[in-house]
Amino acid sequence: MTKQSPLRITYKALAVALLLYALIYGLLAEIPVSPQMGSQLGQSARNLLYHVPNWFAMLVMMGISLYHSIRVLRLTDPDREQTENPLRADIKANESARVGVMFNILGLLTGIIWARVSWNVAKEATSFSAWWGWDPIQTCALIALLIYLAYYLLRNSIEDPEQKAKVSAVYNIFAFMTLIPLFFVIPRILDGLHPTADGGAVLFKKEGMNNLLRTILYPGMIGFILMGVWIYEIRSRATTLRFRWQEWQSNQEYDNSHQS
């Protein structure tokens, strides 16, 4: 059995340690429920520690996906020397986008629950608006999910693997360009309930956000990102292995047919 490189073991151990710290300390620490924090937020402010990191992890995973998509295009360029099979880069782009989608869904779910207990307390639990308020950032997150679901639809509708790799890489790069206004610009135009740099709720502005929460949030965020990288590593290794096995099998068949 091959030994893992020390770097790999270190980041995995770090992911586990940081997540354990964020889980245990985040749930047990005394957080001040001051009027500055917004009276309706109360103890549910802890959800900040488990809601916000999802989005940063998603952006990192989408960034990795973007990087591998660019590599697919460079590897299929006939003017350049082909150092690696572009289909392997495509596997990585695909799997990291998948983990990004997972974080997107987790972020939406934690957001829905949080919105229920902080923004929409007064509403009946059976009404739709008690769970989903069409807040601008919430809507943008949903649109980001739709963009990447469309990416998978596109992948499913192309048969030829090489063509699939190339076309979906082009779409992925184009989609990432629209992710930037979705998360950084539109929330500033449309006033909403989320705290933003200039407007919206004032829950987590400099004076409102508690230092304690900060000391848990940032390490936890790194933990989320590293855990995402780990999941992505496992998924892409498994798919690459399947790809290699298929290649090996077809080589065997080729050899057999030429020997006989």
Partner: peptide, 18 residues
Amino acid sequence: MIRQDRRLSQMESEMNEK
């Protein structure tokens, strides 16, 4: 996660052999 990771490492080394 850890079980998957170890299994994958093993299968990868087998694949390298092949």
